[in-house]
């Protein structure tokens, strides 16, 4: 059972972090990052299956792969930024976390520009 493995790893990591945190806070942070990476690697194979389904659905709906690729990139950026910001907050660096999130928002907006322009063009053609 994958879920048991995942929960076990999460609980062990939590206990270790709680124990270590009082003595060595920097080691606790490293443990937290390691636990996050292990959990991500455990579900990485399954993410591929979900992506295949989404691609198949988009293909059936006739959605251009350019749009879907943009959306998937945006979701990826959001997740990575979220994880990074949480780690920063755990380490007590709320300011860095905020800036990290700000950078991610800018990247998301940059990637969204083609879609926004496509919608605007469609609307303008509709009105003319």
């Amino acid at each position: 059972m994958d879920v048991l493995q995942i929960v076990a790893i999460g609980l062990i990591a939590t206990v270790l972090i709680v124990v270590v945190k009082s003595q060595r806070p920097e080691m606790a942070l490293l443990l937290s990052i390691a636990a996050g990476v292990i959990l991500f690697l455990l579900v990485l194979g399954k993410i591929g299956a979900i992506m295949d389904i989404i691609r198949d659905l988009a293909d059936r709906a006739g959605i251009s792969m350019v749009y879907l690729g943009t959306i998937l990139k945006i979701v990826g950026i959001a997740y990575i930024a979220e994880f990074g910001a949480q780690i920063c907050r755990d380490a007590g660096e709320g300011a860095v976390a905020t800036k990290l999130e700000f950078a991610a928002k800018i990247l998301i907006m940059v990637l969204a520009v083609p879609i926004v322009v496509a919608v605007l063009q469609a609307l303008l053609k509709l009105t003319t």
């Binding site: 959306i71 959001a78 910001a85 999130e101 928002k105 998301i108």
Partner: peptide, 14 residues
Amino acid sequence: GEMKKYVKMVMGLL
């Protein structure tokens, strides 16, 4: 979290 509303907006556009 914080990122959700941004991604949601882009998805709405899509």
